[in-house]
Write a protein that binds this DNA or RNA. Structure first.
Lengths: 144, 144
DNA sequence: ATAATTTCGGATAATTTTGTCCGAAATAAA
DNA sequence: TTTATTTCGGACAAAATTATCCGAAATTAT
C-alpha cells in the first residue's frame, strides 16, 4: 500500500508525537530503536518530514525531534503520506494508465474510485493526536 | 497500489478476455501493443498467469492466449492480483508491522482494516466477464 | 520434411527503492 | 573555549523491481 519509507515515516512520527505529549524530545537513535527501523534510512525520512514542517528538529546535545502539541490535531496521516509517497495513491489510475479519467475510464475506474476515496477520507481525517493518544494508553503498538 | 507487473497483468488479461468474447486468440505482440506495455516483460507475466491456470496459451503459428468463455465469470480480479502480487495487500499491516493483529494492533489497524476489506470485497466480486463486456462496448479503455 | 511462427525459460541489464557511511554543521554542556 | 552530542547532506552500496535478449521447444502451414 505505502512504500517502506512511508511506513517508517508514519511510525516514527507517531512515536515522536507520543513522546511530545509528555513534552519529551526524542533522538534519531531512540526513534529507530522504538520503531525497529534502520537508523540512517530513518534519518533521511525524518529530514523530509522536517523540511515539510510536520516535525521539528533540534541539533546538538539533548537535541532530537518533537512536535508541538498544538499541531498534533492539525496534522493528519495524509500529510505524512503526501510528503513521502506523493499523491499517486489518491490520483493515479488503478491500472497505471496515465490518461485514465471519467471521460475515458479504465475498466476498473469507478470501482477503484470508491476504495481510493474511502482511503483518502480516512487519511485526511485521522490526526496525529488521536493516534498518539492510543499509543500512550498502550491500546496500540509500534513494534514488531 | 499494485506493482507494475500486476497492472500489466490485469490489463493483459482483460484484453485477452475481450477478444475471447469473440472467440479470437491473441498473440503476445498484439497484447503488448494494445495495452502499451514492454513485450518481453509482459511475456513473463503471461507465463505466470498461464501457470496459475487463469489463461490458456497455445504455441506455434496462429498461437497465442485465450480464456474460455465459461471461465470468465468464475475468474475474479482478486485471482490475478493474488497470482502476481500475493496476498500482502489484504493481509499485511498498513504500517508494515509483521506481528500486527487485533490483539496487539498498530495505531491504524482498525481504520485500515475497513479500507482493505472494501478493496478485497471489490476485487473478489469483480469478474473478468463483467469488465471484458464493458471493454467490448467501448465504455472503457485499456490504453494510455 | 522443412520452414516459419509463437510461447517458454534462463541469463543479463537498467532502474528504483532501500539501506549504509562518513564528514560537516550546529549546539549544548563541561 | 573545548569537547561531546546530535542532526544534516552527499556519496555510495545492496536489494528489489522492471525490462531486455536470445536460444530452445512446440506447433502450424507450406
Amino acid at each position: 500500500m505505502f512504500s517502506k519509507a512511508c511506513e517508517y515515516g508514519i511510525r516514527a512520527t507517531l512515536h515522536i508525537a507520543q513522546k511530545s505529549l509528555h513534552g519529551e524530545r526524542v533522538s534519531l537513535k531512540e526513534i529507530a530503536g522504538e520503531i525497529d527501523s534502520p537508523v540512517a534510512f530513518t534519518a533521511k525520512i525524518l529530514q523530509q518530514l522536517t523540511r515539510a514542517g510536520l516535525i521539528t528538529s533540534v541539533k546538538g546535545p539533548s537535541g532530537g525531534f518533537q512536535i508541538a502539541k498544538k499541531d498534533m490535531d492539525r496534522i493528519k496521516l495524509s500529510d505524512i503520506v503526501n510528503t513521502i509517497d506523493g499523491d499517486s495513491i489518491y490520483k493515479g489510475c488503478g491500472l497505471g494508465l496515465p490518461a485514465c479519467n471519467a471521460k475515458k475510464p479504465c475498466p476498473v475506474h469507478d470501482k477503484f474510485a470508491l476504495v481510493r476515496n474511502e482511503l483518502r477520507t480516512m487519511l485526511e481525517n485521522t490526526s496525529l493526536y488521536e493516534l498518539a493518544t492510543g499509543l500512550d494508553l498502550e491500546l496500540t503498538y509500534l513494534k514488531r
